[in-house]
Simulated assay, not measured.
Amino acid sequence: MLDHDTIRSFIKVAECSSFSKAAELLHKTPAAISYRIKTLEDDVGTQLFLRTTRSVSLTPAGVHLLEQCRMWLSWLDSVPNELRQITDGIERQVNIVVNNLLYDEDTCAGLLSYLHQKFPFTQFQVSCQIYMGVWDNLLYGDCQMAIGATGSESLSNNIQILPLGGVEWVFVVAPIHPLAKGPEVLTEEMLRGYPAINIEDTSKNLTKRIAWLLPGQKEIKVPDLGSKLKCHLNGLGVGFLPRKLCQPYLNSGQLITKTIQNSRHPSQLSLAWNNEKDGQIVHHIVSLFKSDNPIIHGFLQNVTPGATKRHA
């Protein structure tokens, strides 16, 4: 009913709004094209084209079938390449989760463009998660790779890791914040009266972590690192930010550093991948990190190599 030639004939008639024009482009006679389309309509039991002496147009059923035929034809054309890809050990689907601390839009777009050109028949999906949500997606989701899994040790025997370095933290307030004029070392009593700006852990199965919050202190939760930075710049609250992220604002005076009694140690982050789900593409991405390829540098702009290895 819907063989390869019939699909091509139907699509061409729909695009040309003409049996004769479609026949010319397909190097067939108008009668052959007309017969093929009439046979298709008889087989599906509904009219696909409205015919007049001057024009041919699709019925609503024909519009729907056109959408499906274009997808089928695309799939049929790609099948040989997909099969060769599977034989060569190249994944059909690669899902990557990126830690919010490392996520960079330009770097992500650049990496996806590079991978699409090198592996054109693979589907790619990238998600952004917070804290233990990265491990959660790697252990319990369908991700094969994590950029920025917390810690320097694997949480599973089937997960391999490559340490990337640590995110160094600095406690900051805006110059307009009341604590900006306080003593250099702030006590917990001084801090407790002002909101802590935090990003909520996105883990669903593993225990969630709270970055920094004092007992009895108000917490304001924001969705990502960019929002947290803006809140600090606006003087809304207090808390820690990656040193490399906020250094330009420290240099310009838009943020100032303060010392608190319990400082936050660097957060060790790693590249992690599932060795039971990996293939050529996952191994290729690992090689980009191992060789310090410039294409992945944007993911590491908040990371200091060799920083103290301690979890966030």
Rank of each mutant, 00 (worst) to 15 (best):
W72K: 04
V185D: 05
A180H: 14
N95P: 01
I33D: 04
K277H: 03
A22P: 06
I147N: 02
D43L: 13
L241I: 13
T122G: 01
S152Y: 15
V98R: 12
N262P: 06
P30L: 09
L229C: 13
Q85L: 03
E168H: 03
K12D: 07
L164E: 08
L40T: 08
R243G: 02
N251S: 13
L162Y: 03
V172F: 03
G133M: 15
W72S: 04
L225T: 02
P60F: 00
D104W: 11
Y103C: 04
L66E: 02
N100G: 12
L76I: 15
L112D: 00
C16Q: 15
Q85S: 09
P30N: 06
T150V: 06
Q123S: 05
L179S: 03
L115C: 01
M71F: 10
F49V: 04
K258Q: 08
L2S: 08
L138M: 11
K244Q: 13
L58E: 07
F240I: 01
L2C: 09
C16Y: 11
S291R: 00
K181Q: 00
G151Y: 12
T187Y: 15
I197F: 09
P223Y: 14
W169F: 14
F49S: 07
S55W: 00
I281W: 08
S252G: 11
K218P: 03
N234D: 14
L255V: 00
N205P: 01
K277L: 09
R8G: 01
Q280M: 12
I11T: 01
K12E: 14
F171C: 06
S252V: 11
I86E: 09
N251F: 15
A149W: 05
L102E: 12
L250W: 13
Q160F: 08
Y114P: 01
C108G: 04
C16K: 15
I220M: 00
G151K: 11
R54A: 03
I33C: 05
N205Q: 10
E67R: 14
L50H: 09
T59D: 10
R70L: 01
C69E: 07
A61K: 09
P294Q: 08
L236R: 10
P163N: 06
T308S: 14
D136V: 08
D43K: 15
L138R: 09
K118P: 05
D3Y: 14
L269R: 03
N251I: 15
D201T: 06
R264C: 02
P195E: 07
G141L: 06
T87K: 12
H297C: 04
V97F: 11
G141V: 05
A180I: 10
N157T: 13
P242F: 01
E82G: 07
S267R: 08
E153S: 02
A32E: 10
Q47S: 12
G151A: 12
